[in-house]
Amino acid sequence: MSEPFLPWWITAIALAVLTLGFYLLLKRPLGVSGSWARVVEWKNDQRLNEEEAPFLNQPKLFADALMAATITEFGEAEVARFMESRHKNKPKVDLKSVTEVATRTHWSLHLIFLLSLIIGGYIGAVYKGGFELQSTLGETHVALFGTGFAGFMTLLIGGMLVGFGTQFGGGCTSGHGLSGVSRLVPASLIATGSFFAAAILFSFAIRYLF
């Protein structure tokens, strides 16, 4: 049966170009579970924006606030002692690098990205020969998990495992798999191995045991 999908090597090249392109254009690695987290926690983002607002482009103000907080935490004597020893060694302190408020991608950008994935899927379906609304994920899924309540619960619980698991594990197929493994990030190598192994074992189990 011929598949209406791209040859594997074209998809592979496209995904690699996407991964590298994302990194170069947006100056951060691709990671969809991270985008989801930022959208779900958008209120947290708004709060952080408000807290940061007075310090934008005000490195001296930020440095003073940091110093005040340090003194509150450790006490004047300890801080004075530390500053004294630093002056003896005369390190070069780059005020800008110390006080630059970290650039963070606004949650609305993450939201746009996620919504655009839907649009991309739509265009893909149209290109493959017609967009069609379907109530199931196809014959294979129905054969394994059923329709109605059983099918519904499979998707709900499965979705929760994906949502919870990607946060708990620190990333998903794009974050750990594409961006992490390709940069040989140890956590990503372990994570990717783990989620593939789990998916494979589970699939064998439901196919051949139940």
Binding site: I157, G158, G159, L161, G165, A199, F202
Partner: peptide, 12 residues
């Protein structure tokens, strides 16, 4: 976490 994700991916 990754194990949970893998199972969820296989389910959905």
């Amino acid at each position: 976490g990754s194990i949970m994700f893998g199972v969820g991916w296989a389910m959905t």
